[in-house]
Design a protein around this nucleic acid. Structure first.
Lengths: 209, 209, 209, 209
DNA sequence: CATGAATGAGTCTTCATTCAT
DNA sequence: TATGAATGAAGACTCATTCAT
């Protein structure tokens, strides 16, 4: 009994290990410049072994990106459920959750921070592409809802909620990416305070007078 | 006589044509996934012809990216010269100039919106890398100066100018990128109003109270 | 158990097969005019397979040339150890060993008979180049020592030992090369008797009076 | 009138200049590794211009190699005409003439010192190949005749004349090649004395007792 | 006569993927 | 399950050759 379970656990850990290494490389070097050879070498397994766990390079990529995005989606949906909560808090919670998921799973960084519609279209089969799109749309939608709630609650100016979501979302992404590049040089991680400051500023703008 | 001139003009137009096609592909698909084969096919020339105009793929990339960034640098430096001008106007001018340059030269999109320090380090020789870095730093610096001016003029809160620059800059980049991906589906170009709204919001935050 | 060994043997035989075919082509056509495509075709393997065994074309070349030269070096050093032996015999032994190594490994033919300092300098990394140079110098040195011994023993005239070595060495190489070209037409292999006759003549010249 | 002549002279000098540069490169780097681009660059003409004077790269090669070999052939035939002359002197004359021609025309170096039957067969059309072969055979034949004359005159031992010719010829070639490689390092030109010493030695061997 | 421009064919090299063991 | 070995397809780059001017 225990043997089967152990095998199962080992298999999963192996799988996750591949994913983690691949995620880091995909993020650092991009999809095309990441070779299965390097992933295999770092994971200290044979290249062929990767094919036991993933059908193709695309598949590996998808299997990294989808779970992170799905997890974020679940969390944002949960956060958005509380319709009574002041919008400002909801917005901050969404940002926090997003940052949290991304910090814990650098692989998903790649997806979002370097997301290029055209690239995905070439890379993924339609159903997978659609799934990712729908997840992203959902996440984006939660932010939009929160901003709209703020407007309805009279906390925020009467602005275009969608537009504000775009701004918040991109500000977040921009900061991440900017600081990533910076971290190549400096070692200190300023991502959290920078994001917080950015959100403060935008919220101040939303609430001012 | 006129013959030489015409030849010259033809050569330059050919060169620009290659650059434009390459810029679009680099932007859409990234450096690694763009093949010279495809560039040649789209430009309806032979692959070898590209090598008449550019020493290598790296070189082609650099020749696309550098001029746009240099042009932006020139414009921003000029804008920043007027130290009397109210900071808010200067900030808007910087944003406008940036957008202007980028809209006229989609190639530079790629550099900035997908800029990855690590990738460049592998791609470019040291002197070219340094040149790009210095241009980017200069551009960023102008924004920082403008924000600082606003603080000194008592128009903006006493915030970290550098941080605000990061936010503004990334907001800009984020909006561009977001809308780019969006434009793959819809055809309307919302980039300008979205950027303006974003800047409005951030400036409002900076000035509030 | 035996499986692993058999695999090992197969791998080595494959490697040697590639080397043999490559050696022949390098010899017949020179480095630049020998394509990996042709090597692969003749070995009835894929071009990519070559890269499983050798890091590059240069590497393949070096791996062919170095072992033969090193083997020759070992043998000549051993022969030269006997300082009592009459010089004439030592010289003949050196020639015999050289011929032996070269006949058993046509790849090394190329190196020595077509050796061009300039070509190697472009082809090989410094440490490999140095290694080959040092091997060649060592081999040459053994001959020089043997001739000097003959002079000291009073068997040979008092000539410049270095010069005589050059003559002997090149005579050997020349005969090989000449006969090689000839063999393209005739099929009989006159290399051994021709070399022997050449050495006889030169030794006679050294000893005359 | 004079104009036509000047043009003619200019054309010939241009032609010879191309040949000289090409000869040097062919010799130093080999046929395959010498590019018309480099020849053109060094001659400060356009690559296309080379095609005004030579039908192809092969043709250029042949036009370099053939005249030198033909000139040598003419001289050797003349030398061999004097059947009364002591064989030793004739042999030395042949060697001197050979060296002379080669020193004055490094292009022919390449042909003979790096002559590879197989390469030529691929490179040249049958009639040209046959012509070169016949020239080389003729040159070789003169040496053979001279040695035979020495035997008939009772000056040389009764050896195989053909074999001795091979030895002499290759000794010459070997020394040239060896010293060429050496000259890459040292600058002094030891080719003449080394060849002379080699010939002395061999002649001594031929005459001893 | 001379050349700048263009290109097709070929070269080395990499890599995702398959398969026998 | 795991892997070493093999490969087809593709990519960057070079070069001899042609041609319009």
């Amino acid at each position: 009994m225990g043997i089967v379970e152990r095998k199962q656990r080992e298999k999963e850990s192996r799988l996750r290990q591949i994913q983690e290494i691949a995620a880091e490389l995909f993020y650092k070097k991009g999809y095309a410049e990441t070779s299965l050879d390097e992933i295999a070498r770092r994971a200290e397994i044979s290249k062929a072994t990767i094919y036991l766990y993933f059908k193709s390079k695309d598949d590996l990529y998808y299997q990294i990106v989808e779970p992170a995005l799905a997890e974020l989606s679940r969390r944002l949906i949960k956060i958005a459920e509380d319709t009574e909560e002041p919008a400002e808090i909801t917005v901050r919670k969404i940002i926090d959750a997003t940052r949290d998921v991304f910090f814990n799973d650098p692989g998903s960084y790649h997806l979002v921070s370097h997301y290029r519609a055209a690239e995905f279209k070439r890379l993924l089969p339609k159903n997978r592409l659609d799934n990712l799109k729908s997840l992203m749309r959902s996440n984006f939608h939660q932010m939009e809802q929160a901003v709209q709630k703020g407007i309805d609650q009279g906390i925020f100016h009467n602005v275009d909620a969608k537009l504000v979501s775009i701004i918040l979302w991109n500000c977040f992404m921009g900061v991440i990416q900017f600081q990533e590049n910076r971290m190549d040089l400096e070692s200190t991680d300023y991502r959290k305070p920078t994001i917080d400051a950015a959100v403060d500023l935008i919220l101040k703008g939303l609430k001012s007078r």
